[in-house]
Nucleic acid binder design. Structure first.
Lengths: 191, 191
DNA sequence: CTCGTCATGTAAGACGTTACATGATTTC
DNA sequence: GAAATCATGTAACGTCTTACATGACGAG
């Protein structure tokens, strides 16, 4: 009565399981968290989350419990089981979970920029820069508020690790802005 | 006799079509190019390429021609058609081709680093750093050799655009190294 | 009275990957 | 003798996204 079919969680499923280790959460909670924190390096959609949770339950890596509510709709809170924790630890420590994957539409537009009408590239870059700047301010707000204060600063401290993830976002975005300036120089030059 | 079923190319299909605008190429050529240049921001696998080419042909965006060879196997060279060029230009100029997508396994490992045995994070980071450094040297070699010399420096010059794409890779990788050093500091601290 | 939040889910399909299958030639 | 290069493809599957469907409550 352990699991019915279903081998192992998909990559996204493992991430979801990881989020449940800290504290029990509903699908709704998860999809909110997935956007702010993990979403930056492992995007998860609502549909994906609601699809994975029952699978994790069938593997008995999580347990779901219905919580009746008044006013707002009932919700289902999922808790990681002991098996879930162990399986997750093994997965996390495995040497090759996979290589980073990047898909960057604007870079496609730059790469093939010669086939773009004059001035169009500049417009596309400007729009993109705005969204990048916005994201930057969001993540620096997280660093300054949610993750402020001093933590132990060791690898066994979850807060330090969360902070590193946000630092990654900030460093990456700043690099992106540097590059966008280089693009500007070329985009403006004698179009 | 234009197209039989098949709506529009998939994102990957458009990128493949873009690569054929410069010069005709075989599936084999494309998969080599896809690794070095476009692969950095839009990964393409062999199987994907060989799957998309017939679809592009059905849409009459490309034309394939069998080229007999001696010693080595025959190949099929695909050329972009006029329709293909026009469709590609329209697609490329469209405002929202999509948002950048990043999936970063090591960041998952860092994010959940508190669930990792002591010292393991440092190992994972070291392995990753090596691969990152290797990639960096590959891309700087491309900048210094294949894309050396002075081009017009304007947006209508394909070489300038290719160079910008490589610059993106380099800037991004250097940022990654900066971040990896921050991770080290935490990973080492009193584990 | 409209919009946002809370809350869960499904169905269909797009997209891409892994693994398999084949085989001659050249280089170490 | 082993391995890399050249060259093309398919079948099955995994993974994830889009769009749809529903509905009550509170804030402005």
């Amino acid at each position: 009565m352990k699991n019915t079919s279903d081998k192992q969680p998909s990559p996204g499923g493992w991430v979801i399981l990881g989020l449940l280790l800290d504290s029990p959460k509903s699908g709704y909670d998860l999809s909110a968290i997935a956007q702010r924190s993990v979403g930056q390096f492992w995007p998860l959609t609502k549909a994906h989350i609601y699809g994975e949770l029952p699978k994790l339950e069938r593997l008995s890596y999580v347990e779901g419990q219905e919580v009746p509510q008044q006013g707002v709709p009932d919700k289902k809170i999922y808790t990681a089981t002991k098996e879930g924790r162990e399986a997750f630890s093994d997965w996390l420590a495995s040497p090759s979970i996979g290589e980073p994957l990047l898909r960057h539409p604007l870079l496609v537009q730059v790469f093939f920029g010669a086939h773009l009408p004059p001035g169009r590239l500049k417009e596309l870059v400007d729009v993109y820069r705005q969204s990048v700047i916005k994201t930057h301010s969001q993540y620096s707000a997280i660093l300054n508020h949610a993750l402020k204060g001093s933590s132990s600063g060791s690898a066994s401290d979850p807060v330090s690790m969360r902070r590193l993830a946000v630092r990654h976002a900030l460093i990456r975005i700043e690099a992106e802005l540097v590059w966008l300036n280089e693009v500007d120089l070329v985009a403006i030059a004698t179009d």
